[in-house]
Amino acid sequence: MLKPINGYEGYFIDDQGNVYSKWVNKGIHGLTKDGPLRKLKGSKHKHGYTMFRFKSGDKAHLLHRLVIENFVGPIPEGMVVCHKNDNPTDNRLENLYVGTQKQNMSDSIRLNRFPVGSKNGQSKLSNEDVRKIRRIKEMKPELPNRVIAEKFGVTRKVIDLILRGRTYKNVI
């Protein structure tokens, strides 16, 4: 289904995530809106999303947001547009939904596209370190978490979160 893009005369969008234009550049005669519909390619955002600029100097519009705005309605403040399959190039309406950033991150983790635990570049602990921490606490429950933290070069809070199962959930 093809719809005009809100606020941009001569531009159209379909529910498959394609953008079209009727504008034709006539060279020295300028732009005219009398051409046949032609599919536009867009450009790539640094995170892999497709984006478009409809006017010179205009802000970049992310395609997944355009699809939702034109087929569903305005995106509420603080909400994001999520890809169900976590593929930033799949902008079909059926693959998009409006959700929270937390939901978006949960999708990434569920689909193994977000590095967790020792796969995260900022992690100071290996999976084996986490197993050692758990074993130490099992064998010496009276040992303060602060002492374990000093041994592994992390904060007491990190040890608390590991032992409560709040972080490194993937490590058994």
Rank of each mutant, 00 (worst) to 15 (best):
G30P: 09
R65C: 10
V19I: 11
I133Y: 07
Q103G: 10
L96D: 06
N120Y: 07
V72G: 03
R131Q: 14
V171R: 05
V81Q: 07
L66K: 07
I68P: 05
N104D: 12
V130K: 04
D15P: 09
G57K: 12
D58K: 07
Q16H: 14
P144C: 13
T89V: 11
L161N: 14
R53D: 06
R92H: 07
S123P: 05
T100V: 03
R38Y: 09
Q101W: 05
P76I: 09
S21N: 10
P141L: 12
F12Q: 01
L125M: 03
E77V: 01
R156L: 01
L163M: 09
S126Q: 06
R156W: 00
D90I: 03
P115M: 07
K140R: 15
H45L: 02
Y97H: 13
G27D: 04
K84N: 14
L31R: 15
F54R: 08
H64N: 14
K137M: 11
I159K: 04
D14P: 06
T89S: 12
I28F: 13
N91V: 04
V80S: 13
N112T: 10
N170W: 10
S123K: 09
E69A: 09
P74L: 13
G10Q: 12
P144M: 11
R164V: 03
K22T: 15
I148R: 11
L40N: 01
K55V: 12
R164E: 13
K33N: 15
P141Y: 12
H61E: 13
V171Y: 00
K84C: 05
L111G: 00
K119D: 11
R134T: 05
K44E: 08
T167R: 08
E128Y: 10
N120R: 02
M139T: 12
V154C: 05
K132N: 14
F54T: 06
S21L: 04
G35W: 03
D14H: 03
S108W: 10
D14F: 06
L66F: 09
Y11R: 06
R110E: 12
Y8G: 02
R164G: 00
N104A: 06
Q122W: 09
G48D: 07
R92S: 10
N112P: 04
M1F: 10
S108M: 15
L40V: 04
I5W: 12
F152T: 10
E138T: 14
I68R: 01
T100P: 07
L40P: 02
E9F: 14
S21K: 05
T167K: 08
T100I: 09
V80N: 08
E69P: 03
E138M: 13
F152L: 10
V171E: 01
N170A: 14
L143V: 11
I162G: 02
A60D: 15
I28G: 03
V158R: 09
S43A: 12
I68V: 15
I159A: 00
T32A: 14
H45Y: 01
G42F: 00
L31S: 12
F152H: 05
H83F: 02
G27W: 02
K102S: 15
V67H: 01
G48Q: 06
V147T: 15
M105K: 14
G30I: 11
V81F: 04
K169H: 04
F54E: 07
K3M: 09
I75C: 05
P4T: 02
K44Q: 04
P4K: 11
I159M: 01
K137W: 04
E150D: 15
P74Y: 03
I75V: 12
G78A: 02
E9Y: 14
R166H: 15
Y97Q: 10
V116F: 00
R134L: 09
D129S: 12
